[in-house]
Design a protein around this nucleic acid. Structure first.
Lengths: 175, 175
DNA sequence: TACTGATAGTCAGCATACTGAGCAATATCC
DNA sequence: GGATATTGCTCAGTATGCTGACTATCAGTA
């Protein structure tokens, strides 16, 4: 199939005066990162909806982290899953509104809110797990198991090196 | 440093009754995809701002694609860079508002808008290129050149397999 | 040519994500 | 103890990104 992009990407089809400094999108790690994430989110939402639930990737990550760290505050949660704290405010709003989590004032620090998962949240998390795992498999569907592992290794390595470059770096919770 | 996440992630520290079905975030390709993209966007914006410009990743991709395919319509643009057409509407609005692109009714199809880059847009693209290329290098900074290539190869492969799974798949322009 | 379906673009609505600012409370330092 | 800095959270504002719906137009066909 002959396409415009084949024409413009082939130097022989361009007059000498046309600048070709703009690289192909597929050579840009930033573009590939966005595309992969775009697909990952779509797959996640589709699998979760098929399972009969209405939960976004962030909401899932937040809920799972609250369950694993009962009583943690919002800033700690944000650090554990590497989201900006201003984003987390809205995410928690929606988890609370759906009855999956609770937000109550901390007794030790009156600025902080302690987060707890509800029974309903625990039930949702348990029932949604197969869909989440299925989504993770599907988004690596084009790769062999070995390639999938290697992709994840390289992503982890690049992320570790760039962790401090975003406003919401990953932070382990301090004891 | 002892951290809460070390505790909760170590099965020896958990009573037998605690379910550990929720995998670590770092084993989830979806989470890694979001983190890498988050860093990529932050690096892009920082480099571009350092160079004295105010352009987002989408705006850059759209502008570069308009320059390479003068007169294309919005749906074709959306397909080339794999964005939803409803997103592109707003992106073009802002490019036009900044004086970097023009949107005029198509003579062949009265539903469509033909997109053109302005001289100012061309100038901006030319001057911004070093910052964009620098950003691409920085976001792979933790990897060797070989690893960077391999990461991009694996991303391309996974994306190609999942292309149809998002609402905005990549589409080549038809002649 | 009239009908039917598909397509280009926009809009309303929702949920991320970010910047920057602000308030209240805590921690630190003198 | 009191001034200062820091921290937890929220809010306003902006830009993606998506779903679903709508209008205007085009294309194919009976």
């Amino acid at each position: 199939m002959l396409t415009i992009s084949m024409l413009v990407n082939d130097p022989r089809n361009l007059p000498a005066s046309v600048e070709t400094s703009v690289k192909d999108n597929n050579d840009m790690p930033g573009h590939l990162a966005r595309r992969f994430q775009q697909i990952a989110v779509a797959v996640f939402l589709a699998e979760v909806e098929d399972a009969g639930f209405d939960l976004t990737p962030v909401q899932y990550a937040a809920l799972a982290t609250i369950k694993a760290n009962p009583g943690l505050d919002q800033v700690t949660l944000a650090g554990l899953i590497a989201y900006d704290r201003t984003t987390i405010t809205g995410v928690i709003d929606r988890l609370v509104q759906k009855g999956l989590a609770e937000r109550r004032p901390s007794s030790r620090d009156r600025r902080a809110r302690e987060l707890q998962i509800t029974d309903e949240g625990r039930r949702t998390l348990r029932k949604i797990t197969p869909a989440v795992e299925s989504a993770q498999r599907i988004m690596l569907g084009g790769l062999s198991a070995k390639e999938g592992e290697e992709l994840m290794r390289l992503l982890r390595k690049a992320i570790a090196a760039g962790n401090e470059l975003s406003r919401a770096p990953q932070r382990d919770a301090q004891i």
